[in-house]
């Protein structure tokens, strides 16, 4: 901004350094542009992810027709008798995710309700950081735990369970996801205004009734978002399934069997030494694209649900 400068009192009231400085102005503009570019990197990443997956998959689909990719029931791209059907990988992914969600959604919701509505202050102060720590344990460690602790434990209950199974991978994945689901669901429940609870208590409702009939519907959009986050985590989870579910593609809906997920297949191929540009190399991008579309689908469903049931206080 240009300061008003009068002729007679120039030096005394308005020294030069307070005037309009072209250099300073340019510096500010430069910094703003730089910061904008940094913020724009996140968009660039998204564009790069989509462009890269589509480009590499395009080469793949020139070699393998889309119809075969979607309907063939075998996935053996590295064998001499190569089949490129994504179904076995999708079934493995969906089964392990379903097991994980059967654990994470009920337990995560109960934890969230308990921490938000029931727990005394001290219990919450201890439990929240603890759950956060649980979410910070590396996934490869959970994989180790699933393979060497949970599987032998389950084998005592189900003697016919093989050494690799979707069941034990899914169970451990579920426990791993609980903190994500519970912390997000709890945040949205605590955002429900206190006067709604007070109204409910005034009508003679108990805490459980209030939680179930007032708080949960009020926080529905946030709870839905928490579930969607859990689903994304489960579908995209890699190390637990790669270690504990085996890496053999297997078209099955039975969690007691070993099977490979999309992510486990990508890991398996990456561990080998595939030349850049070979068909095997392109399969992991086609698999990656499928995985991204799968998580995108769930995210869109979640977005629609949130929009529809959003409560504004």
């Amino acid at each position: 901004m240009r300061l008003p400068v009068t002729a007679q009192s120039d030096e005394i009231t308005h020294p030069k350094r307070l005037g309009y400085s072209y250099r300073r102005h340019l510096g500010e503009r430069f910094i703003e542009t730089l910061l904008f570019l940094m913020a724009f990197v996140s968009v660039a990443i998204t564009i790069a992810i989509v462009a890269m997956l589509v480009k590499e998959s395009f080469v793949f689909f020139e070699h393998v027709p889309l119809w075969e990719f979607l309907t063939d029931t075998q996935w053996t791209p590295l064998f001499d008798d190569a089949h490129y059907g994504i179904l076995p990988l999708i079934s493995g992914t969906l089964v392990s995710s379903a097991v994980a969600l059967l654990v994470a959604i009920p337990l995560g919701t109960i934890t969230a309700i308990y921490l938000s509505e029931f727990a005394p202050f001290a219990a919450r102060e201890v439990a929240k950081p603890f759950l956060e720590l649980l979410g910070g344990v590396p996934t490869v460690v959970y994989g180790y735990f699933a393979l060497l602790f949970v599987t032998p434990l389950l084998q005592k209950i189900f003697p016919e369970l093989p050494g690799f199974s979707l069941l034990s991978a899914g169970l451990v994945m579920g426990i791993m996801i609980i903190p994500y689901v519970s912390s997000m669901a709890e945040d949205s429940m605590r955002a429900v205004p206190m006067h709604l609870r007070e109204g409910s208590y005034a009508m003679g409702a108990t805490r459980f009734q209030t939680a179930l009939r007032v708080v949960m519907p009020g926080a529905f959009s946030g709870i839905a978002a928490a579930y969607i986050l859990g689903i994304s985590r489960a579908v995209g989870e890699t190390m637990v399934v790669a270690i504990a579910a085996g890496m053999q593609p297997n078209l099955t809906w039975n969690p007691m069997e070993p099977a490979a997920t999309i992510t486990a297949y990508i890991v398996q191929v990456s561990l080998g030494d595939l030349p850049h540009g070979s068909i095997g190399y392109q399969t992991i991008f086609a698999a990656g694209l499928t995985l991204l579309l799968l998580t995108l689908t769930f995210n869109i469903i979640g977005h629609v649900l949130r929009k529809r049931y959003r409560e504004v206080y």
């Binding site: 996140s42 998204t46 590499e56 995209g236 990508i266």
Partner: peptide, 28 residues
């Protein structure tokens, strides 16, 4: 708004996808 939505969505992208991006972009 695009940048903000984008940052939220990036947090939900499976980590292995970042690996594929790095393989294609940085490595090759």
């Amino acid at each position: 708004e695009i940048i903000e939505i984008n940052v939220t969505n990036l947090a939900g992208v499976p980590s292995i996808i970042y690996g594929l991006l790095a393989l294609s972009l940085f490595v090759h």
